[in-house]
Design a protein around this nucleic acid. Structure first.
Length: 259
DNA sequence: ATCTATTCCTGGCTGC
DNA sequence: TGCAGCCAGGAATAGA
């Protein structure tokens, strides 16, 4: 599932192919993926740059921004063939950009410049340790659901939240505000390290994820808790446990991670 | 403020 | 082999 490292990898692979290209037309737009039809507004505009906002892919156009969120199974493909799951196509002056999405949890939205957009928290990769600790201290809730809340920090999803908590030795049910300064700092460091390492491996490919050229990532082989329920902890050997927290699965080691 | 439940969607499992 | 039923989960939403 695309989280910060996967989205970053998609952007790095898609940007050189579409920056500077102009949009000649659109094809096959799924109403589910694009709740408000903006296809007419896109035609004739040039894609100036592609950047990441949390898990959002932002394409800067002449008069606005095209916001692509991959959801669970979304793919942005520059050289892919159409499939039954191709939900949207941008016809460019050189090539086409396909948006494939099996489950259609992804969304494509267009905002004219100046229009209000959703305000999310600081980016998980660039937030500083002091600001991170300060934001933690202000929250009463449990740490795992907080890490998944894009208004708290943007970019983390279920995989990297679990992986960061394990690396920092923090139990997913730990209360955010009760973490010591030292543990808050460890968690911040673990988040930055795990995201950086995952970007270097082109992200995690569990089921569907590939970059804009169809290449899978390889960080899934370095997962230490996610998807390892019942398997031995790499540190202490105890079986990794899976619980449901805030309607999400949380994987952790009952010995190495403390509340 | 925080928490839970629900909805969206469909391929791929599981179990009979 | 076939098929029903369940699961994964990001994010929005409603309600407690």
């Amino acid at each position: 599932m695309p989280e910060l490292p996967e989205v970053e990898t998609v952007i790095r692979s898609v940007a050189p192919k579409i920056e500077g290209r102009s949009i000649l037309g659109t094809q096959r737009f799924s109403a589910l993926v694009m709740p408000e039809d903006c296809t007419a507004a896109l035609v004739g505009q040039t894609i100036h740059s592609v950047s990441r906002y949390g898990k959002h892919i932002l394409m800067e156009l002449d008069r606005g921004v095209l916001d692509v969120h991959l959801g669970m199974t979304g793919k942005l493909l520059t050289n892919g063939a159409e499939t039954p799951y191709t939900r949207a196509i941008l016809v460019l002056d050189r090539g086409r950009l396909l948006y494939d999405d099996i489950r259609q949890f992804g969304r494509i939205r267009y905002h004219e410049r100046g229009e209000a957009t959703d305000e999310l928290g600081p980016d998980a990769l660039t937030i500083g340790p002091a600001e991170f600790a300060e934001r933690l201290a202000a929250r009463r809730g449990r740490i795992k659901p907080l890490l998944l809340d894009q208004r708290f920090v943007r970019g983390l999803g279920n995989i990297y939240a679990d992986e960061a908590l394990f690396r920092a030795g923090v139990h997913p049910r730990a209360r955010a505000a009760r973490l010591s300064a030292h543990r808050a700092q460890s968690l911040h460091q673990a988040i930055v390290e795990v995201l950086t390492a995952a970007i270097e491996k082109g992200g995690s490919s569990i089921s569907d994820y590939v970059d804009a050229e169809g290449r899978a990532g390889s960080f899934q082989v370095e997962h230490q808790v996610y998807g390892r329920e019942g398997e031995p902890c790499i540190r202490c050997g105890r079986p990794i446990r899976r619980i449901v927290l805030a309607q999400r699965s949380a994987h952790y080691c009952p010995k190495c991670q403390r509340v």
